[in-house]
Design a protein around this nucleic acid. Structure first.
Lengths: 105, 105
DNA sequence: GCTATAATTGCACGATTGTGCAAATATGCA
DNA sequence: TGCATATTTGCACAATCGTGCAATTATAGC
């Protein structure tokens, strides 16, 4: 596990590991269709600018994707990608394959 | 998903979502046996006090457990618990069961 | 064109966080 | 008892982060 990969995984987890951002993810999880930011604002009681910034962080980590329709941006959760990343980490931690190779740097 | 649960999950992810802490987790992942903090220090180039604090955070979130043997504390990764939490989140996000219940607060 | 709405950006602020160093504490061993 | 080693704690500091507000940009509709 090199440093760059570790950093990338840490950034991914950190993006999810904040209350309002995780709330946004849960909110998007509940929605079958894409949602614009104004709609998502309602799920966490913060300013629209804050939601905008949180969504940007989530998008940077590929946790959400958006389409621009008119003046709105509609966001959707990258369900498969996020779930896959979490499961890969779970597999690594549960250790299917790394117990033997001690200190194989 | 109530606020307390959301906060708990966010705290768990935040604990994993820091470079040196995740490095410690990976290091423990590589080790079949428990490791004391001094040994773990070697995997991230920071002061022993920093490692001590990071391990405390990981222990608070039940990511690692420790035994005290003499003046040493030996840490081990809670593989199953951590993997389970990650998989549960993955399942939730991939949405086996919540798509229908819109706004079921 | 003008106005209303959606979203972003700049700025400021307080809170939290990661860190190193030195001191303190705890324990093993001679 | 005294010294060495493992770990924690107190302190300080810089950096990051989450936030609100006001201003700005982008776009739809009149």
């Amino acid at each position: 596990m090199n440093a760059a990969e570790t950093q990338k995984t840490a950034d991914f987890l950190k993006a999810l590991g904040e209350f309002n951002r995780l709330s946004l993810v849960y909110e998007l999880c509940r929605c079958e269709s894409s949602q614009n930011a104004m709609c998502l604002c309602e799920c966490c009681s913060v300013d629209a600018s804050v939601v905008s910034r949180h969504l940007k962080v989530l998008a940077e980590r590929d946790i959400v994707t958006f389409d621009k329709v008119g003046r709105e941006k509609t966001y959707r959760l990258n369900r498969n990608e996020v779930a896959t990343q979490l499961r890969e980490l779970a597999d690594l931690i549960e250790n299917k394959d790394c117990k033997r190779g001690h200190h194989d740097v």
